[in-house]
């Protein structure tokens, strides 16, 4: 029963979701909308699970005097400060509220800083990718050089053929490869969904036994 019930629920709701794709009638869509609302309700409860997990893991690190327990203190400081600030102001989303101030002036800049690191990582990854050690890497280097030149005015100044070559690279070989990958992905998704619905694939619930 511990395995049959999830499998049965998975089959019933999986088949229903597949059928509603072909049935636009409002009676069927009404039920589909209710399902999505249930999913949102589940998600709200799941965040509680996540918070409990976070607190538990970091509490254990502090209790066990783990070498990196200082970071756990930072986690607790951040977590409880934000919870506290959320309670201080009746509308914590209101502009100027302490919660909103902390979010805008601490979290947003920190996240932007993390995102901006991407520029440096792109440079280091490009340096590694463009070392022409193999035929594939050489082709990649040539294609990248043409595409980069074709995207800036100097490319057109050197030769009007460069932007044309850029367009051809992006619209013909690049798009062809992308579409090939996407067809495979689509079929892979369908096959995985079907195998889960039919109970053939059970790894998501811990295995096949």
């Amino acid at each position: 029963m511990r395995r049959q019930l999830p499998l049965a629920l998975c089959f019933i709701f999986g088949v229903f979701t597949a059928i509603q794709y072909y049935v636009p009638h409002f009676r069927v869509q009404w039920f589909q909308e209710r399902l999505l609302q249930w999913l949102m309700t589940l998600l709200a409860f799941a965040f509680l699970l996540g918070t409990v997990s976070l607190i538990k893991v970091h509490y254990h690190k502090l209790r066990d005097r783990a070498p990196d327990r200082g970071f756990s203190l930072v986690v607790f400081a951040g977590l409880f400060t934000m919870i506290g600030l959320g309670f201080i102001h009746p509308d914590h989303h209101a502009p100027g509220s302490p919660f909103n101030q902390m979010f805008l002036n601490v979290q947003v800049p920190i996240e932007a800083t993390m995102f901006s690191l991407l520029a440096f990582y792109v440079a280091s990854a490009a340096f590694r990718a463009f070392r022409a050690r193999t035929l594939e890497a050489t082709l990649l280097l040539i294609a990248a050089a043409i595409v980069m030149l074709g995207r800036v005015p100097i490319g057109d100044l050197i030769s009007p053929k460069i932007p044309e070559a850029t367009r051809w690279i992006l619209e013909v070989p690049n798009l062809t490869a992308k579409r090939g990958v996407m067809i495979g992905v689509g079929l892979g998704m369908m096959a995985t969904a079907l195998k889960i619905m039919l109970g053939i694939e059970r790894a998501w619930m811990g295995g096949s036994d």
């Binding site: 990958v181 996407m182 067809i183 495979g184 992905v185 079929l187 892979g188 998704m189 096959a191 995985t192 079907l194 195998k195 053939i200 694939e201 790894a203 096949s208």
Partner: peptide
């Protein structure tokens, strides 16, 4: 790349039933 992600579970487990699903994918492809 792409579909190989979906084939990975069957490939690693080598369960014949899961491999059958992969061959079905290949047929439609």
């Amino acid at each position: 790349i792409g579909e190989e992600l979906y084939a990975a579970s069957a490939y690693l487990s080598r369960e014949p039933v899961l491999l059958g699903g992969l061959k079905g994918q290949d047929t439609l492809k």
